[in-house]
C-alpha cells in the first residue's frame, strides 16, 4: 500500500481507521507551527485525518488547540509547515477559500449572526451552494425565486438533523445555549464541507444533551460521509466517539493514539494531573 500517511515522519503515527486506508486522507498536516512574537504557540504539529474519521484534539487549557483550528482555517497564517487538504496544498489560501475548499468549523465562543433568524443563519451557510447575482436579487428575477426556494428547503432539511425546523424563524441570539451550538454545526454543514472542525461542541451542555450530541456527531458523519475533528474537554464524549486522538500540551503533540492508548499514556496523565512530586 502506498498510503501517503506512511510518508509522514515520526512522531506522527498514522492512526486513521482501517476503512479510510488506501485513499488520500482528507487532512495531512506536517510540521505546522506559528510564532506569536517569539512564543511558539504551536510547534511541529503533525496529524493525518482519514476521510470519514472522527478525530479528537485534546489537551489542557492554553495548550494551543484552538490555535490549531485557526491555523487549519487560515484565521492565522502559519509560519511553518504544510497543510494538505484532500492531497492539495492550502498554502496562501484565505479563510474564505479554505471553506470553499472543504473545511467548515464552529467556534469555541459561539459566533452566530445573532441579529438574524435561524433560517437566515443557515442560508448564509448555503451562500456558495445556491448562487445568484446581486442584481437578480434586487430585480427579483426568476433565478432569485428558484434559488431562494431551494435554499429554504435545504435549510429546513439541515435544521431537521437536530429537530430545529420549528425554530427557523427565531432570532439566533434568542436561542438557548445548546441550540446555538447546534445551529453553528448546521451552518457549518450547510457549506458542504469534507472536513468539519468542532471547537468544544459540548461546552455548556448537560449530560443528556451531550449524550444526544454524541449520537448526532456520528449521525452527521454517516449521513454526509465526512471527517470530523473536534476539540473537547468532556472526556466521555472524546473517548466515546473519537477513533483517533491527539494530545496537545504547550503547543506540541505529546501523544497520539486510540482512546484506549491515550487513557493509558503516562505523558497524558502527567499533562492533565501534573507530575508526581518526588519525595
Amino acid at each position: 500500500m502506498n498510503n501517503p500517511a506512511k510518508m509522514v515522519p515520526v512522531p506522527s503515527r498514522a492512526i486513521i481507521p482501517e476503512r479510510d486506508l488506501g485513499v488520500t486522507p482528507i487532512l495531512e498536516v506536517s510540521h505546522l507551527g506559528i510564532n506569536f512574537g517569539g512564543l511558539n504557540a504551536v510547534e511541529d504539529f503533525n496529524i493525518i485525518v482519514g476521510r470519514t474519521e472522527i478525530a479528537g484534539l485534546i489537551g489542557p487549557n492554553g495548550a494551543g488547540k484552538t490555535t490549531v483550528f485557526n491555523l487549519l482555517t487560515k484565521v492565522y497564517q502559519p509560519t511553518r509547515g504544510a497543510i494538505l487538504l484532500d492531497g492539495k496544498d492550502t498554502a496562501g489560501m484565505s479563510t474564505m477559500q479554505i471553506n470553499q475548499a472543504g473545511i467548515a468549523r464552529t467556534f469555541q465562543n459561539i459566533r452566530l449572526f445573532q441579529a438574524l433568524s435561524v433560517e437566515d443563519n443557515v442560508k448564509i451557510g448555503l451562500h456558495n451552494q445556491f448562487k445568484y447575482s446581486t442584481l437578480s436579487g434586487i430585480l427579483r428575477l426568476p433565478r432569485y425565486w428558484d434559488a431562494e426556494r431551494k435554499a429554504r428547503e435545504q435549510a429546513l432539511e439541515l435544521l431537521s438533523i437536530f429537530n430545529m425546523e420549528r425554530m427557523a424563524s427565531y432570532k439566533a441570539g434568542s436561542l438557548p445555549y445548546g441550540a446555538q451550538r447546534r445551529l453553528e454545526i448546521v451552518r457549518a454543514l450547510a457549506t458542504r464541507p469534507s472536513l468539519l472542525l468542532l471547537d468544544e461542541p459540548a461546552a455548556g451542555m448537560n449530560p443528556s444533551e451531550t449524550e444526544a450530541l454524541m449520537a448526532n456527531i456520528i449521525k452527521i458523519r454517516d449521513m454526509f460521509q465526512i471527517a470530523i475533528m473536534l476539540i473537547e474537554h468532556d472526556m466521555r464524549l472524546v473517548m466515546g466517539i473519537c477513533e483517533g486522538i491527539a494530545v496537545l500540551n504547550y503547543g506540541k503533540i505529546i501523544a497520539k493514539g486510540t482512546p484506549e492508548e491515550i487513557q493509558a499514556n503516562p505523558a497524558v496523565i502527567e499533562a492533565y494531573l501534573g507530575q508526581k512530586k518526588e519525595a
Binding site: 482555517t73 484565521v75 484565505s94 479563510t95 474564505m96 471553506n99 470553499q100 467548515a104 468549523r105 467556534f107 459566533r111 452566530l112 449572526f113 445573532q114 441579529a115 438574524l116 448564509i124 451557510g125 451562500h127 456558495n128 451552518r187 457549518a188 450547510a190 457549506t191
Partner: peptide
C-alpha cells in the same frame, strides 16, 4: 454581525 464567522462560511 461577525466577520470571522462570515469568512468561515466562504463569504
Amino acid at each position: 454581525d461577525n466577520r470571522i464567522a462570515a469568512e468561515s462560511v466562504g463569504i
